[in-house]
């Protein structure tokens, strides 16, 4: 069973997050990119809450702003052209957006760690894998080199790398894609983070390896009670791993709720259509729903609701007014004029 603690009474206050065991509270985060062609309004005021031991699946198509949101939480965006133009990111009662670079470096990799899509580009080809995991431990947990290497090997065992002791001196190119991703996970979890941000960690992997990695993340999450922000474009993966789901479209979170609500009782037309447009492996669907058009350009996004040109239930109001975030059920939020 999923943890019942996720069903707390809704709490919209930002600063009292110590009481409702929220690990991360994001309010009104806006990120723009100032480019030569114009201002790209990549993230337009998103709100997120992730509790201890909870997995939030952040789902969206390419260009919806999911990765930009995640990178801005840990201030990894290139500034300029990117700029965080508004909002707050509370993590353990401090606003990460106000921290100095030095303070942020202490948190990043320590209390908040990340796994990216392509493990080959996130690992340094010139250091052995154990050295890379150990570096984290030396910096954040102030371990001595020998102790750190020993712990690195232990972590490699924890994430299921066979023959960890011998393989610890090998280099990333000697590992397969799935094993590299395990090294990344070992490194990310080595400092027992309170929050793990996983950005499409299985997209580059084969299904059998994906299943192994998903199970590993789930297992480690249970073991260490880590909060996970899992970013993906794949609804099936979200159904597999998430407790709560936030659906992003063109810089907005258009719908958010627990995983059963989103899959069984979606309210936003985008979520509804998207869910009926995906083929399934367990049964053949007679018809795939089509969402007309394609994702908008975020330099000149549509006025009002950004989904309105593609929406089947579009009304006059939709092209004029940006819909507010409304709570239609307990912890089920929608941004749509229908509600």
């Amino acid at each position: 069973m999923k943890s019942k603690s996720t069903r707390n009474s809704p709490d919209s206050s930002t600063r009292e997050n110590g009481q409702n065991n929220s690990v991360l509270t994001v309010r009104g985060l806006r990120v723009y990119f100032f480019t030569e062609e114009g201002v790209v309004k990549a993230v337009e005021g998103i709100d997120l809450d992730i509790k201890k031991g909870e997995t939030l699946g952040l789902i969206g198509e390419s260009g919806s702003g999911k990765t930009v949101s995640a990178l801005s939480l840990v201030q990894l965006l290139p500034i300029p052209p990117a700029k965080i133009v508004g909002g707050s990111v509370f993590f353990e009662n401090t606003d990460l957006l106000t921290l100095s670079d030095k303070k942020m470096r202490e948190i990043r990799g320590g209390k908040i760690s990340m796994i990216f899509q392509d493990p080959m580009t996130s690992l340094n080809p010139l250091y052995s894998v154990a050295d890379q995991i150990a570096e984290n431990l030396r910096v954040h947990r102030k371990m001595l080199p020998d102790e750190a290497t020993k712990e690195a090997i232990r972590m490699m065992n924890v994430v299921g790398i066979p023959d960890a002791e011998r393989r610890s001196i090998e280099y990333p190119h000697q590992f397969s894609g799935g094993m590299r991703q395990r090294v990344m996970i070992a490194s990310a979890l080595s400092c027992l983070p309170a929050l793990l941000i996983a950005d499409e960690p299985t997209t580059a992997l084969d299904v059998t390896i994906q299943a192994q990695v998903l199970e590993l993340i789930e297992e480690l999450k249970q073991k260490y009670d880590t909060a996970v922000l899992y970013i993906t474009h794949n609804f099936a993966v979200v159904a597999e791993i998430a407790d709560r789901v936030a659906v992003m479209y063109a810089g907005y979170i258009v719908e958010e709720g627990d995983v059963y609500t989103i899959f069984e009782n979606p309210k936003h037309p985008y979520t509804i259509d998207l869910l009926s447009s995906i083929p399934r492996v367990d049964k053949k669907l007679s018809h795939l729903e089509v969402i007309r058009g394609s994702i908008p350009n975020l330099i000149t996004p549509p006025e009002g609701c950004r989904f309105h040109p593609r929406c089947k239930k579009v009304m006059d109001k939709c092209s004029k007014v940006v819909p507010e975030r409304v709570e239609i059920n307990e912890r089920h939020f929608v941004r749509c004029h229908l509600y």
Binding site: S176, G178, M179, D206, V207, T208, I209, Q210, A211, Q212, L214, E215, N234, F235, A236, V237, V238, A239, E240, A242, V259, Y260, F263, L275, I278, R280, V281, D282
Partner: peptide, 25 residues
Amino acid sequence: EALLCCVPIPDPRSRKSREILTGEV
């Protein structure tokens, strides 16, 4: 059988502890 078992299904209720193929190709 193992390959099909690994494919996630977009339905949170079908979540199951599945027998995952170990090792790699």
